[in-house]
């Protein structure tokens, strides 16, 4: 399973984050929320400066692009834990 993170942050912003935090997973940028809208995850005015951002969501997608597991939090403080996501990936086999 390959984790891929997506947000409205520009590539340079995410690059700084990677440098600071030492992340090794792939981070993709969707600054104009095109893909976020396609996935129906737009949170209009969700950023502190009122910009549109994504609502938090996780999708486990198999090689046929089928969704096998999702997590849609109802509270931005509550996120899927790594062990929950790994357990979901292991159940796919």
């Amino acid at each position: 399973m390959r984790p891929v993170a997506i947000s409205v942050d520009a590539p340079e912003v995410s690059r700084d984050l990677v440098h600071k935090a030492g992340y090794t997973f792939l981070i993709l940028s969707d600054p104009d929320t095109t893909v976020i809208r396609q996935y129906h995850l737009l949170h209009p005015g969700g950023a502190q400066d009122q910009h549109d951002i994504a609502r938090p969501a996780e999708f486990l997608v198999d090689s046929s692009k089928m969704v096998r597991w999702t997590n849609f939090t109802e509270d931005i403080r509550v996120r899927a834990r790594a062990d929950e996501m790994l357990a979901a990936a292991q159940q796919m086999r």
């Binding site: 399973m1 390959r2 984790p3 891929v4 993170a5 997506i6 947000s7 409205v8 942050d9 912003v13 984050l17 976020i36 996935y39 995850l41 949170h43 969700g46 950023a47 502190q48 400066d49 910009h51 951002i53 994504a54 609502r55 938090p56 969501a57 996780e58 999708f59 486990l60 997608v61 198999d62 090689s63 096998r68 931005i76 996501m85 990936a89 796919m92 086999r93």
Partner: peptide, 15 residues
């Protein structure tokens, strides 16, 4: 080989 899956993680950004 192909990854068995990808985990798409949409997050709010602005970190």
């Amino acid at each position: 080989h192909a990854p068995k899956a990808v985990l798409l993680i949409f997050y709010r950004g602005y970190w």
